[in-house]
């Protein structure tokens, strides 16, 4: 019965692993809630856990929660996708914190779980993205994404000298923020008669696809002079595509967000400018609004955080505070 013993050993080891994870988690939860009880309990549900923008948002929220004496739990799906985020939202509702800050991954699919959350008496603050139903959240913290798109268009005009075709490469349609960026860009580009705006292309969060989009666009429109990439994977792929086609320098690119990868690309000259948001501020502001709602104070329905253009030139000076973090 040696074999039976082995089964037992494997089983025990597994249980051990489960317990280990359980213990670790409880420890963390307890230290977060401190001596708990009267402390407000907050949860932050990110759009995805593996992205500098959301990491920085989490850092801001953690710092603010600590400063205000609230307990904060940060969760999120490993991919930016509604079918992965909804179960997490439901689990958080079951946990029943006092307030939840959430970056919904889809403007439609997240409505029923967020409605349940509201019906359970949990105050909800939307951060960065939002759902199509404005009645669910007590506050919406976001940067002005239409304005961000406009700023990108202005920068493209400056970089290209106002000539040639320009292209927007966006992540996936249906995300409120990147849709607004593309929309702002296309509006603003009409102001510049020398620039010809091509239809928006989508790379579905896939850098390889963005590279393919660029090479095929270059084949069809040799006068391509500027590209606006509305999200990180798009920017990475566009840079690779431009390098592969050996046109770097001839085509200017404006990227979005200022994570470590994008800053590196900026320094290397793959990207000429970045439109940076303030995810750290978004996290802080979301916690502030959530705490106001919990204590029954009036909340601000719409909180706008800042935007800035970061270039190689201002990186060391005014742009430095806009650089995102990859860890707190």
């Amino acid at each position: 019965m040696k074999a039976k013993a082995t089964t037992c050993a494997v089983g025990t080891a597994l249980l051990g692993l489960g317990l280990l994870a359980g213990c670790g988690g409880q420890g963390a939860a307890q230290s977060a809630s401190g001596n708990g009880g009267s402390q407000p309990q907050l949860s932050l549900i990110l759009g995805t856990t593996n992205n500098d923008f959301y990491v920085t948002m989490g850092c801001g929220a953690r710092a603010e929660a600590k400063a205000k004496g609230a307990a904060l739990d940060v969760q999120g799906p490993t991919e930016f996708s509604a079918d992965l985020q909804v179960p997490i939202v439901n689990a958080v509702t079951a946990k029943h914190p006092d307030a939840v800050m959430i970056a919904p991954t889809d403007s439609q699919a997240l409505i029923p779980p967020m409605r349940q959350m509201k019906e359970a008496g949990i105050k909800t603050v939307e951060v960065d993205t939002k759902v199509a139903d404005d009645s669910l959240a007590v506050s919406q913290v976001t940067s002005d994404n239409v304005l961000a798109g406009k700023k990108a268009a202005d920068e493209i005009n400056k970089l290209t000298g106002g000539h040639g075709s320009v292209l927007v490469v966006s992540n996936t349609p249906g995300i409120s923020t990147s849709d607004a960026r593309g929309q702002g860009f296309m509006q603003e580009i009409k102001k510049y008669p020398g620039l010809h705006g091509l239809p928006i292309q989508y790379n579905n969060d896939d850098a390889t696809k963005a590279a393919q989009i660029i090479t095929s666009t270059l084949a069809a429109h040799p006068d391509l002079s500027g590209v606006f990439a509305t999200a990180e994977t798009a920017a990475e792929g566009v840079a690779t595509g431009l390098k592969g086609a050996d046109t770097s320098g001839k085509v200017s690119m404006v990227g979005f967000d200022a994570g470590p990868t994008q800053i590196q690309a900026l320094k290397a000259g793959d990207v000429q400018a970045l439109v940076a948001q303030e995810p750290y501020r978004e996290g802080q502001a979301a916690v502030d609004q959530a705490l106001k709602a919990v204590s029954g104070k009036p909340t601000v329905k719409e909180v706008r955080t800042g935007l800035a253009i970061v270039t190689k030139d201002n990186l060391a000076t005014s742009g430095s505070k806009y650089v995102y973090k990859s860890a707190c």
């Binding site: 670790g24 988690g25 739990d73 969760q75 997490i88 689990a91």
Partner: peptide, 24 residues
């Protein structure tokens, strides 16, 4: 996944534990 969120464990643990259970 649900339990880890409720307990407040980092979501990455779920993938690790499911993988281990699968091999076992």
């Amino acid at each position: 996944q649900n339990g880890f969120v409720i307990v407040g464990i980092q979501p990455f643990w779920q993938t690790v534990v499911v993988g281990a259970v699968l091999i076992a």
